[in-house]
Nucleic acid binder design. Structure first.
Lengths: 140, 140
DNA sequence: TTGCGTGCAAAGGTTTTGCATGGCA
DNA sequence: TGCCATGCAAAACCTTTGCACGCAA
């Protein structure tokens, strides 16, 4: 599936290793850049963006957009490991992004596929709403 | 609910009328700007953005983000009329955005609220995946 | 008259692109 | 050696902000 990757460079190995190391979490391009800058072996902005885009096209990572001005986030698509199918829940109030795993959501995917002919990608999808804490805090 | 609106101006009336006239569809800020430019009575960029943000905060319209670089889209929240609770489906391949109305999705909202304490906002949420046509076209 | 609303232009943040150089195979 | 990958800076894109002027109340 990674037929596109022809040359193996220091930057690529470092980037892929880093992304794999944060497989459970979500990181932004800026996070990646800062990470390597902090390590003393910086990787150029353009390289990071180019590589992230490429990995996304290859299906190795998933990009998902959260809100308005905020940057995109990326996440390793680890088919085998401890990051199984899950959805993102983003609170419109406090901005918290949480992952949930729930068979009802898988059922939903089946339903939409069957009834509406649309194959939902749970990794990319972000459900918006108000989280528990915010709802209590504002007793709405 | 629109306690914030103090002055009534030509621009505001025109903007709100336009947004209401496209209640079913989704429009971007650019769409709005071009619409009035085409009419020969242009409204300044800043005014459009400021007003859209304000309407969003007042709950009159909903903003939802689709993909990466693309601009935000807006949509009138018409509680009473022919735009009842629905979800957005965006195809990752062809970019088409469709609306679906489906009680299973409402059920999902109930479930997430009950089980996960999260109150989903269907207007803002965009489900990503591959649409029927693209799936057939690429026979995946 | 008061002060919110408007519009222009400039700034801001994120992502892409042009181009010369570097490094894998 | 050939050609992809890198990095810098500049451009592109969407959105916000500063500031002076206009206009509703």
């Amino acid at each position: 599936m990674s037929a596109a990757s022809i040359y193996v460079t220091r930057q690529r190995e470092a980037l892929e290793a880093y992304l794999r190391s944060v497989a459970g979490r979500h990181v932004s391009a800026e996070d990646v850049i800062e990470h390597f800058a902090g390590l003393g072996e910086p990787i150029g902005r353009a390289t990071v963006y180019r590589y992230l885009r490429r990995l996304e096209q290859d299906g190795v990572i998933q990009r998902y957009v959260t809100d308005g001005r905020e940057a995109s986030c990326f996440q390793y698509v680890d088919e085998s490991a401890e990051a199984p199918e899950h959805f993102h829940l983003k609170c419109e109030r406090c901005g918290t992004l949480q992952h949930i795993q729930c068979h009802t959501l898988s059922d939903l995917g089946q339903h939409i596929k069957g009834e509406h002919g649309f194959d939902v990608n749970p990794f990319k999808t972000v459900l918006y709403g108000i989280c528990h804490d915010c709802k209590i805090g504002e007793n709405l």
